[in-house]
C-alpha cells in the first residue's frame, strides 16, 4: 500500500483515499458535442502503461480533492 500526501493531512495510507480516475476537462455542455464526441466523452478513458494524472479525494479523511501523477505499472506516485 502506498502513502499518499493529502494537502491538509499529510502522508496517509492509500486506503483512506478514493481515486476518481484520469483528470478530464470540465464537463462539456451537451449542445457543444456531436453525437460521436458525446459517445467518446462517455465511453473513452485512458488505458495505457505509464504516468497518468488523476483526481484523488481524501474521502475517509478530510474530504479534500487534489491531483497526483501515478504510474500505472509501478504504482509510483509523484505529487510535486
Amino acid at each position: 500500500m502506498l502513502l499518499i500526501r493529502c494537502p491538509w493531512c499529510g502522508l496517509r495510507s492509500e486506503s483512506e483515499f478514493h481515486c476518481n480516475g484520469e483528470v478530464r476537462p470540465i464537463r462539456p455542455h451537451s449542445s457543444s458535442l456531436t453525437d460521436q464526441q458525446s459517445v467518446q466523452h462517455t465511453c473513452d478513458r485512458l488505458n495505457f502503461k505509464g504516468w497518468i494524472e488523476e483526481d484523488w479525494c481524501h474521502s475517509k479523511g478530510c474530504g479534500e480533492w487534489f491531483r497526483l501523477n501515478r504510474h500505472t505499472v509501478t504504482h509510483e506516485i509523484d505529487q510535486d
Partner: peptide, 8 residues
C-alpha cells in the same frame, strides 16, 4: 480494485 487502472 476498480478505482485505479493498473497493469501491475
Amino acid at each position: 480494485d476498480a478505482q485505479q487502472i493498473s497493469f501491475r
